[in-house]
Design a protein around this nucleic acid. Structure first.
Lengths: 206, 206
DNA sequence: ATTCTGGCATAACTCGGTTATACCTATCGA
DNA sequence: TCGATAGGTATAACCGAGTTATGCCAGAAT
């Protein structure tokens, strides 16, 4: 019965874990269930990940990859300010579409007592922080484009994007938690981004 | 040995849980340990709270009360803009001094698989959301004072405070997670608040 | 004085992460 | 070709922590 194993068991485990997370919430992500989902025994999780913590790392890393893909899909037009706004909306949309995943990505909603291991240099391929910083880079690039277009003063792009990221992150988490009703985007998120940029000299167009 | 019970067992359990959380992290907050800390048996937790979830609710509510007290302690001077800034710094200081507590307050870092129950109308005395909205009110009041002083345009105070709260929350969580180095306050938090207010017409300095 | 009630202790139950052990297949070396 | 080795797997047991069952005891009610 135990042949030389499907070649992609590890990927299938991650996918199954993501499905369980999306449909059953964090409590549904259990070693036994994840393994059963791919038709394997519990040991499969430990063979491929060592422990649940590493599986959570892989889940988080995959979440950041999907977020990155979603941000990359935002078109870069000749209106860098609209691009930046759309980047923020895409960021929020990813979180809204995958609330539990988003929370796992940032160590919110631990799974079985495990959060992604923060900044562990030994966990090479799936360190979520590295991928997170990639996301941060996308925001920084967009800010640079806005500066290059002369729409805001030449502030340090990384400082502005750190502010934007913090604000986005906080908004998204509070929205998931239900603190921002149904019109949070129009009432809070959009004006918040505009206001932050106003501090760098942006004045809304005619 | 089992007399008519100390009158404040419930409060002592909450205090013990907060101590365990502060010193041993979320994993140390266990029914057995909390009960042992006050010299009672495990059942004390279930007699007074029913389950761990309710204890976590009480922890979160106490955290919001302490945050509220800290915000109330911020002086109201004749410089409402400085007051608002100090409110943000006090908010961040509370989170920085009690990182695990702050995370529990907002459903980050579940304890034994339990997060505070969100918006449950049945949990009367310890609904964390209600106390959280009180915190939100303090921010709103400070914004109103800034408007009354004519330092920013008369925007809707609740909209501005929702933005400030989102930004504060996001900054604080990312700072706790280590994404904002050591000078996050000067490099991100302070300019972020200033920038948000700039969107409402605030112009720094004389 | 008897009965009822609420808080508590002991100990057992259950779930879920983890580990020990053995097997099976593919590959490698002689 | 054949035995040794290694990696992946299944079975089953181990263990910690939330929870529950049961019974005891002290004070209040009648």
């Amino acid at each position: 019965m135990a042949s030389m194993a499907e070649p992609h068991v590890r990927e299938k485990l991650v996918t199954a874990a993501l499905d369980l997370l999306a449909h059953g919430g964090p409590d549904a992500v259990q070693a036994r269930k994840v393994a059963a989902e791919v038709g394997a025994s519990t040991m499969a999780v430990y063979t491929h990940f060592g422990n649940m913590g590493r599986l959570v790392d892989a889940i988080a890393a995959e979440g950041f990859r999907r977020l990155g893909a979603r941000l990359d899909a935002v078109a870069r037009t000749d209106d860098p300010m609209a691009d930046l706004t759309n980047l923020g909306l895409a960021y929020r949309a990813h979180a809204q579409d995958n609330p539990d995943l988003y929370r796992v990505m940032f160590g919110v909603t631990s799974i079985g007592g495990h959060r992604p291991t923060p900044n562990d240099p030994t966990t090479a391929p799936d360190d979520p922080d590295d991928v997170a910083l990639g996301t941060f880079g996308a925001l920084t690039d967009a800010v640079e484009a806005v500066i290059a277009a002369g729409l805001i003063r030449p502030v340090a792009p990384a400082r502005m994007s750190a502010q934007l990221w913090s604000a986005l992150h906080g908004f998204v988490l509070l929205e998931i938690a239900g603190f921002h009703g149904t019109d949070g985007v129009e009432r809070v998120l959009a004006p918040m981004m505009m206001n932050l940029l106003a501090g760098a000299g942006y004045r809304a167009g005619p």
